[in-house]
Design a protein around this nucleic acid. Structure first.
Length: 585
DNA sequence: GCCGTTTTCGGCCCGACTGTTTTCAGTCG
């Protein structure tokens, strides 16, 4: 059993214990352990075999035993007993807004409700409202929550959420009672998938801002509206929360509501270690909870809060408790890549396969956007569903691209369309085009598009073989995942990264909104191995050039700097680097 | 269930809002 599977089970144990009404700190211990396991860079199996679990912070005696049992036998008696003691449908009830462990336990104990369907029926029969601690309002809210859950996804792609948030943020900025405002939460941290949108505003007139926020005409509904916070359903069914604070409180509230929860816990602990107290209202010279302004350590910005806690400023993208504290304390946080460092994309499509624009249109549009180069890498012939290119068509495309480059040069336009292909990885060590054809092209991206059901070992082998081909520059969308749609195929990502390090192969950060991979959690490992990133749009239309911005956010989240990203290079250096791999044995 | 050089026991982040209560529990972030 690998670490992802172990982590998943630990999380589930935590949730089940919560439903049983266990001590919340105990349930959190399981979630913490799962995080620690997931973050491991070496195989869990090795750690267990060498009896080194105890070295991992957050894993004590009890969890060592359970994890060892899981890894060595693939089963865990404790987990199976726990699962058997509760109906399977109970877990899904947690997804209904307003329902937590306590209420679910009451529904189950008193009404025997153990699934969404049973819950809905109990509501319709009016049984829920009669329970102690419940009422008509709660019952109606549950029904509404179930309906909304059916109609809309509970999670949203970053890019969708951002396009909704951007409009509201602009309106808030323009409001006369708003002093400062920002997004917060997972959106500000640039998570690839987000649950809800958070806004923070500072104002001397909170009720005016709350009124404005809750009466926007585009809203689908209002969940809650108080003196300092409100929660609404915005377009696309995205829950959107607003918090209004005084301007003095703003930096503290911004840090607090940006999270992550795990990051905040460490921040508070650091404050306590310094005899201070940190909450969303301020940093106080006190060992007790307080809001006494006399005790406040004034900070005008988030930067100053970090400073008082002995840390350099941690960009929001890095606030995941994934190593940012050690780096911020030592002053070794990287200067993260910016989206306008990017000079082009090396994986894109045209009308030659399944794209929507001709090479010349693409070239002119990308030049207008300020790019220096843009690679056309259409599909190879095995991707027949995408109108993939065989050798004949590919050679014709090369001629067309050559002509386009010539025309642009004649007009004095300083821009280069690069030739290439997104070649299918068929089976291990077999690509969809022969090496001599690949050698005629500027950029080769190799991706898996078929045979997803092969096992982890076979998939890993396919990717490693592709990396070992001297003509392949980039491994495309590494696991083929589609966020909120389908899981990626199983691979041993660390082994693939190691192979890329050994062969000088680059790894793509595919910035298509539902791909966003290689996953940001793996980049620090790749960076440590010296593997370079290429932020690619995988554009099928000219407008997809905007994905570069999304890709840069994900790269930042993966701790990458300008130097780690190949397509920040000017054309001349890029061409040198492209030739470099072909010179290797 | 984890953790610890002031602690091996007693902490573990904490406040706003809702709805059900008639002073507070549960949920959420």
């Amino acid at each position: 059993m690998n670490k992802e599977q172990v982590a998943e089970i630990l999380v589930e144990i935590g949730v089940l214990l919560e439903l049983k009404g266990e001590n919340p700190f105990k349930t959190r211990a399981y979630a913490n352990a799962a995080r620690a396991i997931e973050a491991l860079a070496e195989p869990l199996q090795t750690i267990v075999a060498e009896n080194r679990l105890a070295e991992i912070k957050g894993i004590g005696e009890a969890l060592q035993k359970k994890i060892t049992e899981l890894v060595t036998t693939g089963r865990l008696g404790y987990f199976e007993d726990l699962k058997a003691s509760l109906p399977a449908g109970l877990l899904a009830l947690l997804e209904v807004p307003g329902l937590g462990p306590k209420k679910i336990k009451a529904l189950y104990d008193k009404l025997g409700v153990a699934s969404i369907e049973q819950l809905e029926q109990a509501c319709q029969e009016g049984k829920v409202a009669k329970l102690a601690g419940f009422g008509e309002k709660t019952q109606a809210n549950i029904c509404e929550g179930i309906n909304r859950r059916r109609k809309y996804a509970a999670k949203h792609l970053y890019s969708n959420a951002w396009s909704v948030a951007e409009v509201i943020l602009e309106k808030l900025r323009a409001h006369p009672d708003v002093i400062r405002c920002s997004t917060a939460g997972s959106l500000r941290r640039c998570k690839e998938v987000i649950g809800d949108i958070d806004f923070l505003v500072s104002s001397k007139n909170p009720s005016a801002v709350i009124d404005f926020f809750t009466t926007q005409p585009e809203l689908l509904g209002v969940n809650a509206s108080g003196e300092t916070k409100a929660s609404v359903i915005a377009q696309g069914g995205i829950q959107t929360d607003l918090r209004v604070v005084s301007d003095a409180e703003y930096p503290f509230a911004l840090a607090y509501f940006t999270g992550s929860k795990e990051h905040n816990i460490i921040m508070r602990q650091r404050a306590i270690e310094r005899g201070l107290r940190l909450n969303e209202y301020g940093l106080f010279k006190s060992k007790e909870e307080t809001r006494d302004p006399e005790l406040l350590v004034p900070c005008k910005t988030e930067e100053e809060i970090f400073q008082h806690l002995g840390l350099s400023y941690v960009p929001p993208e890095l606030r995941e408790d994934m190593g940012e504290f050690a780096a911020a304390q030592q002053g070794t946080l990287p200067r993260l890549v910016e989206w306008n460092d990017l000079r082009g994309s090396l994986h894109n499509h045209s009308t030659w396969s399944d794209g929507h624009n001709r090479p010349e249109e693409i070239a002119r549009a990308m030049h207008d956007l300020g790019c220096e180069y843009w690679a056309i890498t259409d599909h190879s012939k095995s991707s027949f569903q995408a109108n993939g290119l065989d050798v004949d068509r590919l050679r014709k495309q090369l001629l067309e691209i050559k002509e386009v480059n010539q025309r642009l040069a004649d007009e004095g336009i300083d821009f280069r369309l690069l030739t290439g292909v997104e070649v299918d990885i068929l089976i291990a060590c077999k690509l969809d085009l022969p090496d001599d054809v690949l050698s005629e092209l500027d950029v080769i991206v190799a991706s898996i598009h078929q045979g997803f059901s092969q096992g982890e070992a076979e998939n890993t082998k396919r990717l490693i073989c592709a990396a070992e081909n001297r003509y392949v520059h980039i491994l495309g969308h590494m696991t083929g995942r589609l966020l909120l749609e389908r899981e990626g195929y199983k691979i041993n990502a660390h082994a693939v990264i190691d192979a890329c390090a050994a062969t000088g192969t680059w790894i793509e950060l595919n910035a298509s909104p539902n791909r966003m991979e290689m996953d940001w959690r793996l980049w620090p490992y790749a960076k440590g191995k010296g593997v370079k990133c290429v932020i690619n749009c995988d554009a099928h239309r000219i407008e997809h050039a905007g994905y570069l911005r999304l890709g840069a956010s994900a790269a930042r989240k993966g701790w990458l700097t300008k130097e780690d990203v190949i397509n920040t290079l000017p054309l001349r250096s890029l061409l040198e680097r492209l030739r470099l791999k072909r010179g290797r044995k």
